[in-house]
Amino acid sequence: MRRYWAVISTRFRMLLQYRAAAVAGIFTQSFWGFVRIMVLEAFYRSNTGASPMNLPEMAAYVWLGQALLAILPWNADPEVRSMVRTGSVAYELARPIDLYGMWYARSIAIRTAPTLLRCIPMTIFAMFVLPLIGLGEWRLIPPPSVACGLAFAIVVVGAIALSCAFTMLVNLAVLWTMSVDGLTVIAVTLVIVGSGMVIPLPLFPAWSQWIFRSLPFAGMVDLPFRLYSGNIPARDLVWLMLHQWIWVAMLVLLGRWWLSHLTQRMVVQGG
């Protein structure tokens, strides 16, 4: 275990150096947070029927999404991409360590380090600064109960595990095709829409709910955020965890199978 921990912490420390990117990210994500809330609020005001999510829940959903955006598995590990392009991936295979495990550990670092850098200032902004500037209606509410907060913390762990398992599939796609730009576009769309980052999943038509809910992307942000705001009661925690971890298991199995298949027909670039 210690070796995987060493991989995570090394990569993590490296990523914490990118402070400028984090500051830029905070600004962009705050901006998008406002845009999304304003658009959604306009819909709420013109909507006369019952809404599956009230306004504070929706605001919490949006702000958590902006704060935890970096958890989403929308790209491949940039290091894996450059290793595959230059052929340095040969060194990765020359290590006495399970390759899937090592890359999974790297994924944990790339999903958590930028998130950590961004989520604290974003939360302070959305929770405490917004009311001060007269936008209290749009603020990020604290979880309505301790149970909600705890349940949220637990599913965030599952969300990271799930996101990393999906990141691994994108990494393996890089290993498979070398250039993954086209695939990334598909992955981004799938992940962003499927996770509820464009429109919160509860606002999709009722008939489509079961599809979104059963996809793995729901477990990455949608279900955790609704647990946070109490939109889903904390007692449903077990079901959400089951959804997340079954998907983690399936994606990991798929990734491992794919990797073992790929290493049998590996071609290393550049002599």
Partner: peptide, 19 residues
């Protein structure tokens, strides 16, 4: 593979294994 590579060292001159 895993047991094997623990007993060898490899250097590829055109690439680096250092971070």
């Amino acid at each position: 593979r895993i047991e094997h590579v623990a007993h060898i060292g490899v250097v590829f001159g055109q690439r680096t294994q250092l971070w």
